[in-house]
Design a protein around this nucleic acid. Structure first.
Lengths: 162, 162
DNA sequence: TATTGTTATACTCTATAACTATA
DNA sequence: TATAGTTATAGAGTATAACAATA
């Protein structure tokens, strides 16, 4: 069964169907806010990601940086931060940690002495292979959690153009 | 934040002819992770919520507590926290703040002297009316951001089981 | 013993400001 | 003046542990 089976007509939803945990409590008008459900799902994703990636001790933001540096070698911290919506102050400290683990190297940029060229190290490349396998396992769990059809549709909708 | 930074750059693009700013970077395998797009949209939602609700200085978690207490008057902190997935330690401090603002009252529970019965005060009820109007404005912006069809579909899908 | 609410600590993430060294 | 990177601080959110009062 790929989709929900028992959801019937649109009824006034107090707590029907949506019963996270608090035995019998109503959501109230929270039921009308997409942001609430988005947040709950997003928390599930982060918790599962962190748990699944625990063997490599990698958090979601670090993973996103590793993938973007891999896909765009030699770019500056500013560029990577802009891409991912990470403040440059925050990224500086994150990179400090990734450099300490010898996964990422900061190199001089010939054209602008202010900026750093970011690259994965050989060790970082090997680590990222393992990390990707674990992240793939997480994605499988998420697909299972949502149902394959929903997972694909959500990915298309959130990724694609309006 | 622009809509482009949320859903933009879905396809790996080379940075031909672009300035060395963030806009030409490839997502790499991030493109396959629903969690990434979920996170970006969720951040947009929180930022817009906080901005829109600024006149009342209410944050998303506080809003969710106010709505659940309104919909379930007299319930305990434990019940409300379980419902929303908020740690009881965190909720205790949040309620301290909401009590300080005279929006929520903690009353004795006749059956169990350990637990508190939570209720909106009259003042909290009036404040919540204003807050709901602002939150509605936020939801309209979100609907516009996503497109009405997508907003509705996402709400149905995320709200339902699991 | 277990549960409710409380305080305290630690860590992550976000948002600033201020600083340096370059441009 | 402006930009790239760094350091520092403050606040929210999360995850714990320990505690008092009560069950």
């Amino acid at each position: 069964m790929t989709s929900r089976s028992i959801r019937g007509a649109a009824k006034p939803r107090t707590q029907r169907g949506t019963k996270p945990r608090g035995n019998g409590l109503a959501l109230g008008q929270l039921d009308r806010h997409l942001g609430y459900f988005l947040r709950r799902l997003q928390l599930w994703v982060f918790q599962d990601f962190i748990e699944t990636l625990k063997p490599m001790k990698v958090r979601p933001a670090q993973y996103s940086v590793l993938l973007v540096v891999e896909a765009n070698p030699g770019r500056s911290q500013q560029a990577v931060g802009d891409m991912l919506g990470i403040e440059r102050a925050r990224l500086a400290r994150m990179l400090h940690e990734l450099e300490r683990r010898k996964w990422i190297g900061r190199h001089a940029n010939g054209h602008d002495a202010r900026s750093h060229s970011l690259r994965l190290t050989a060790e970082g490349d090997r680590a990222l292979s393992k990390i990707k396998r674990l992240a793939g396992r997480h994605e499988v769990k998420l697909r299972k959690h949502l149902g394959a059809g929903r997972h694909k549709q959500l990915l298309d909708w959130l990724r694609g153009p309006p």
